[in-house]
Write a protein that binds this DNA or RNA. Sequence first.
RNA 1: GGAGAGGUGGCAGAGUGGUUGAAUGCGGCGGUCUUGAAAACCGUUGAGGGUUCACGCCCUCCGGGGGUUCGAAUCCCUCCCUCUCCGCCA
Length: 425
Amino acid sequence: MLDIKFIRENPELVKQAIANKNEKADIDKLLELDEQRRKIIVEAEELKAKKNKVSAQIPQLKKAGEDISGLLAEMKQVSDEVTALDKKLREVEEELNQILYFIPNMPHESVPVGKTADDNVVVREWAPEGFSFDEDKKFLNHIELGKKLNILDFERGAKVSGSGFPVYIGKGATLERALINFMLDYHLNEHNYTEVFPPFLVNKESMRGTGQLPKMAEDMYYIEKDELYPIPTAEVPITNLHRNEILNESELPKQYVGYSACFRREAGSYGKEARGFLRVHQFNKVEMVKMVKPETSYDELEKIVNDAEDILKALKIPYRVLLLCTGDLSFAAAKCYDLETWSPAENKWLEASSCSNFEDFQARRAKIRFKREGEKKPEFVHTLNGSGLATSRLMVSLLENYQTGDGKIQVPEVLQRYTGFQTIE
RNA sequence: GGAGAGGUGGCAGAGUGGUUGAAUGCGGCGGUCUUGAAAACCGUUGAGGGUUCACGCCCUCCGGGGGUUCGAAUCCCUCCCUCUCCGCCA
């Protein structure tokens, strides 16, 4: 959420930012409500001050034996007016929030302005030694490989749950588990994160805190009976760990890494793009979350991208880093890098990680603050997160890149001590 | 799921209708004393909002929400959470 004061002082900037993000919000209406709100507050507080003053005098007057019935009647009137004004204030604030909660974050000045994914900028590419984009070579895609080697079963997943719920079997399941453990260990040992194993169901306040609600409600699963949401990413429970808290400056930066299953309805996405692992309702992801001092957040963003890249380098999977343009930037993000891994069978890049700086957008919603040494006023932290990484897309690239000419899979070297086997055949 | 107890400031813990944002203790910060430190003593120590160029002034907050009252941490309703006992259970 943006600071209402900032919007008040920079309405044109905000309008431009929203337009650049291909979003809509009625800023003029918002400012009108804001003014109305403050007017009501002034009026109500004057009455409250009067009420408090008189109420304090009443016991003395009573003690002195004076007749206060007239005063009581008058105060009753004042009290009723206050109640009416407070009610009006709540209504105005609700209307105001209805707009405010739907306003996206402002893109950082370093983010290229653009309409669609075509306007994203390739920052760098990486590939292991000896790699080439070999278009002549015949590659089986991950679905074919999964079937042939009996390690993935999309049909049975559809039977048990529905389409988009893949099942890993045998060495496929082991490989998936190995991948998750490898990534967690790597971030713990090489990158100095604190491990978190979060709940997979969260409440409404948490979903609002990180910005999934109210705007993305349609993309979430919801368990009505208990008013809980299956998480779309571990970002939600981990960032909300410190909701409504004031941290000490010395505690920052907070660096968490956690595994979770992720649940997404993916309403409205069908067809070719949804084949196999490319778009699923449940997948596994290792997520990095940081809470940092504002002045360091853009350095931290670069670090988090590097941390995700290190995993791909260790796995020796070709990838590229994309800087997203304003139009492709998600609702809560100020700046975002995507990591895309190469899929030789699809002959294209697949998004396997997304690393974002949210600045104080989430922190303001979730009230995550910190206090500087010697300062009185708490400030909002900056929050960041990055997938490090999502296994489903990564698994596509892994299987396809590590297939041998005769349709077997060579297990990446760094995973072998986790799998206990070197090949899948 | 049933029965009971409870949720107050960083922590502990008073407070059951009237200047209580809240006693007291601990902790934190500042000071006196000291070569320095400890002890002792004195002072200070929450958040949000409105208004103001500013000093300041005002409002709100004692788990969340609503209500009674001129006035609520204190009374009523409701929801949430924690603890104890019983039941059920991976």
